[in-house]
Design a binder for these strands. Sequence first.
RNA 1: GCCAGGUUCGGAUAGCGGCAAUUCCAACAGACUGUAAAUCUGUCGCCCUAACGGGCUACGAAGGUUCGAGUCCUUCACCUGGCA
Length: 362
Amino acid sequence: MIKFIRANGKLISTPAFFPDATRAVIKSLTPHDLADAGVEGIVINTYHLLFTPGSKIIKKAGGAHKFMNFKGHIISDSGGFQMLSLIHKSKKFGKITDKGIKLTYPGFKEVLFTPEKCIDAQFDLGSDIMICLDDCPGIDASKKEIDESVERTVKWAERCKKRFQENLNKNGNSTNRPLLFAVVQGGSYTALRVNCAKALVKLSFDGYAFGGWPMTRKNELDIKFLKLVSDNTPKNSAKYALGVGKPEEIAKCVKMGYSIFDCVLPTRDARHKRLYVFNKNPSKTKDLTKRSFYGYLDLGKTMYSNNKGPIDKYCSCYACKHYTRSYIHHLFKIKDSLAHRLCTIHNVYMYTTVIKRIRELG
RNA sequence: GCCAGGUUCGGAUAGCGGCAAUUCCAACAGACUGUAAAUCUGUCGCCCUAACGGGCUACGAAGGUUCGAGUCCUUCACCUGGCA
């Protein structure tokens, strides 16, 4: 398993979990909070930032790192997944064509988001790892639709790579350069996944990501296809499981060869009062893939109103060191944003604890 | 003392002849996996049924009118204004 990835002249330790800062913020946290919580990198979203504030504004600010005042690593997601989450839900957000995605984000001027524009925007953002624009099919897509999405994803990846190269040449620096990852689509069809992976590997990228929906319809990790993609990409390449997942799912994916993860769960759940805890001492466990090892706490429940313990007795994050469940429950009741901040710090710290332990165990 | 308005399911509200009865809050339960999410979905009088459904008790109290009353009428109790 690879221990480091070099991007933009900096080393990224792996495996790594980068929480999602879709709109260039981990909601409610400052970069100082992030550093404190052991967060080494984040994932921002090209699609969302294209509209607000606009990639050019971030470029003028000196890139996303400076704009956000964040010193860690930054991966920019292409926005391909938004085709699934927005356009497949409502046509008002846009339309997918072979040229690119016609984006009609409410309140903004219509733009044709091509693979080239996607890459240019990611250079504007100055991210360390860039993701090719992919065509992510909806969860109920037919085989024909997935077939088309694979074809488009590969073609777009090729165009992304070409544009990526052009941007690198323009900058004239080949050693301290960002990386470009391609996304493997193919849904739940073995042949499509394999073909997509092989076609992308042939084009050669710095890393490969598992795209689409990482969960089965039963909401279980789709191990079969995650493994298939991992097995059909070069052994020592960086592998990114997009949108994965719960701590035990990440641990499982690491065993399959994945080294980079991002997921909205720890941050969103924190805002939804759901806290992640360890049922046993994490520094003593050797297997982090067991579901029973983790617990969830709904701090909104009245049962915690007078609970004087920390969120998690095995955790030493800022929130656990300084505040009780009772107080945070109170903050939720009065709808104070400090609840979000403390809980986000905790959940994110909990994930970094899991990652650190996985690294220790090798 | 006179006049006017009010009293509804934990709290606050809607309802002005067909109602177990609106909405909000609270409470309870659930969801959340490349973030349109500090969000969303249920339940929320009691009892029976796996379910469709059924039974009982309810809109301050007591009477009355009506096929039918939270809704109309009378009296009483309490609360809030205005005038004495």
